[in-house]
Simulated scan of single mutants.
Amino acid sequence: MVGAAQTMQAAFVRELGGAEKIEVGRLPVPDAGPTDVLVRMEASAVNHVDLFVRSGAYQTKTPFPFVIGRDLVGTVEATGPGVVGFSPGDRVWTNSLGHAGRQGAFSEYAVVGADRLYTLPDGVDPSDAAPVLHAAATAHIGLVREAGLQPGETVFIAGGGGAVGSATIQLAKAMGARVVTSVSADDGEWCRSLGADVTLDYRDPDLAVKIGHAAPAGVDVWWDNSGHHDFEVTLPLLRQGARVIIMAGMAAAPILPVGALYTRDAKLCGFAISNASVSDLAGAARVINSLLAEGSLVSRVGATFRLADAAKAHEALESGDVRGRVLVVP
């Protein structure tokens, strides 16, 4: 229960900037509004978008002191009078805190709008769920809303070993697609364990040729997690009616061969999960929960930090030296 002092440990910033701006200290336990739920945090994770928000690269409302963190798995502590469907003691999760003025997840307690909160399936460990929530929702929105992926189609994923890439492999396979992915040599076995049909070395100078051999009829959905977006290479490998998913590469300014795009009836589909509607997130949550309950949605945890070491957790992701997700626990 919330202590008598009504304060909590939290990781927050008073201004935007580098990881050194992150402070860990005591803040008041937030009050749950009429349609809010107060949740005690049991696990969270660091996402690249968290770095962008903290640094100011992704501009959004950040009322200071601003608690950082997007994802949260925990237990309901209290509910507002207008909340139905949640009760104290329920295990729950959310993946849309720390944005658009919503305080984040890196705190002992967090307030979550009931429309952005979902029940955690029985038997799922918070430390297993937290690392997949943001990436899996991103994969679902990209594959379903943007790409309209159909069974039997071929998906190419550049960077299948990362968080979003790994989730996209798993969701695409669950939707009946064939998956080809480019990865580092060290990630090939991991991606095959997730269901990838073909894994290729992204350093291979003949990568484009080998993608063509793996998808001789053309790629239906092209998903590039690298943010490089080399359309001069990509577009000739697409099937007619293909969809290219763009959700990385904020500073990229690639050349776009327009003729190769429109003569294939292809589409460039850009999206940011931070803009997802409550309905989008709820649809993704239903699929995520189903896969979590089956044990068929997994991730790799490369490092685990305590809440008190939140700055180190951000630095670990920024360094690029951690293979796997960065988990944060109280």
Rank of each mutant, 00 (worst) to 15 (best):
T304F: 05
E189G: 05
M247V: 01
P88Y: 11
G227S: 12
G218M: 11
E20G: 15
V39S: 07
F86E: 03
L317T: 06
A251K: 13
V164K: 01
A196C: 08
R40P: 01
E42V: 00
S274L: 14
S87E: 14
P257K: 07
N289H: 08
L235W: 10
A43P: 08
A163V: 00
P216E: 06
A311W: 10
L171I: 14
L235V: 10
D309P: 08
D128S: 13
A185K: 14
A185I: 10
A272Y: 06
T62V: 15
E15C: 07
D31M: 12
V84Y: 03
V39P: 05
C191H: 04
G148K: 13
V198Y: 09
H228T: 15
H48F: 15
R325V: 01
P254N: 08
P330G: 12
I245W: 07
R40E: 15
G270L: 07
P254L: 10
V76M: 02
V328H: 06
E77C: 12
G188I: 06
I288P: 02
N95Y: 09
G195S: 04
S87Y: 07
R70P: 00
L317F: 08
V322E: 05
E77L: 02
V24W: 11
A276H: 08
Q170I: 07
G320E: 09
A215T: 10
Q59C: 00
M247R: 02
I68F: 08
L297V: 00
L292H: 04
A248E: 12
V24N: 12
A45Y: 00
E108F: 09
M41F: 04
